[in-house]
Design a protein around this nucleic acid. Sequence first.
DNA 1: CGGATTATTGAGTAATATCAATCAGCGTGG
DNA 2: CCACGCTGATTGATATTACTCAATAATCCG
Lengths: 254, 254
Amino acid sequence: MQDAHIGLTLFLGRLKLNSTLSEAEQAAILNLSFREVQVATKDDLIMPGETVTYSTLVAHGHLGRFDLMRNGSKQITAFYIPGDMCDLFSVVAPTVGWGISAFGPATVLQVPHAALMAVATEYPNLAFAFWRDTTLDASILAKWASNIGRKKATPRIAHLLCEIGIRLERAGLGSRQGFELELTQEQIGDAVGLTSVHVNRSMQALRADGLIVTKRQMMSIPDWNRLAEAAEFAPAYLLHDEATSGREEAGRSA
Amino acid sequence: MQDAHIGLTLFLGRLKLNSTLSEAEQAAILNLSFREVQVATKDDLIMPGETVTYSTLVAHGHLGRFDLMRNGSKQITAFYIPGDMCDLFSVVAPTVGWGISAFGPATVLQVPHAALMAVATEYPNLAFAFWRDTTLDASILAKWASNIGRKKATPRIAHLLCEIGIRLERAGLGSRQGFELELTQEQIGDAVGLTSVHVNRSMQALRADGLIVTKRQMMSIPDWNRLAEAAEFAPAYLLHDEATSGREEAGRSA
DNA sequence: CGGATTATTGAGTAATATCAATCAGCGTGG
DNA sequence: CCACGCTGATTGATATTACTCAATAATCCG
């Protein structure tokens, strides 16, 4: 089993961020079966209400989870980067209430639920690792809810940028000070519950304050702490160790 | 092991809604150890950032999960009813990013993580059931995000009312047409991202349209389908069967 | 009854959405 | 290399929605 697919390696790396895995367990991950699929920009991989038999692992590119409203508007409820298993959830609840689509060209691995279920049954510790992984997803979502529900436009967008930066950094895919953001302003709006016009104006405000610098799809953060402060961002919710009692660095609650 | 605590019985009932459990597995649930705690209105059981060693099972009363902003405002990110294990999550991620508080007088059982971990390890199927249970929580949260992010005040509130009604009904604790709502208008606002003043006015609009009738803490829904229509509510996201391919009744996507 | 929440109301303000252009970048075909 | 057509970014003007502040009425609770 030399030379596992890069996607599986990334996934393993992600799991190891939060869970301690034995050699055998790691090997089991790297040996998961999969089907590689290339996706074009804006392709929908999964539509809301589908019943799926596999989970979608991002090997390359950025994907998102979304919900559609009757009037055509869209809410993005998650942002996925390489190493993320988009709907690991669906192993235990195969009828999903949301869709998954690609923000840019992407490569994904479809990993059969049966395979995931098998390794999770053989290695209980892997079941816990999977569960822990989806828990992180839920933790992020809870933070999105409070971000959307209780903040003004500017800090809302800033919070999203902080989160993405940290996640990319933790995944070894960039730095919080500079990363590629494959989202249009409209998609940012769909993530934080704003209009593209308002996103545009709010981002101009962030630029005017020197909090962000944009060039093409490159997002640069000259002074990360200042952006985190403006966003009221505290990274603790992203760090789901098995037994964390650690505290975060920036921001303070209440 | 005759006469398990009512809280455990409710929890088992809740798990069985979505998972098939063997006799032994059911017995293991009913035999979980716990510490019973009485809570007064507005008590905080858990504060954001705490590391907990137990999960909190609601035996009686209504609880909520919340996040606090620097300016003192609060976002409620979940609503828990009897039978719900508030932070089953925390079994695998004991440092929680949120708080739990009671909306009214309540009784909860604190179930040690060790006990939950033990039964989940002994019965892999229980691990999946737990995982599935937290997945439902996440599914609800995703729906809250789109509710908050992409809907006007009136449908937002209506959606919350629909959801609570269905959940109480499914838990055998009331009917979607009439149930007790232990939330103040301010708390409703904290759940849907609105001011109490605006909640008040929006609920007046709902009443004027004949969509809801309130008396004390009793919420009555004369024509449930009409409310669901106004809320753009489709209950599918609440039904997380192991292998659902069923469709919902009301509402339509896209 | 008295004090404390909670609900309701009104008036004024701020934030965000909407609508409609225009501008800029970028790939394509000629 | 350039004109064309597309998507996404930006701008301006206006309409709505929701928030704020401040007061009053209702209820609750002992």
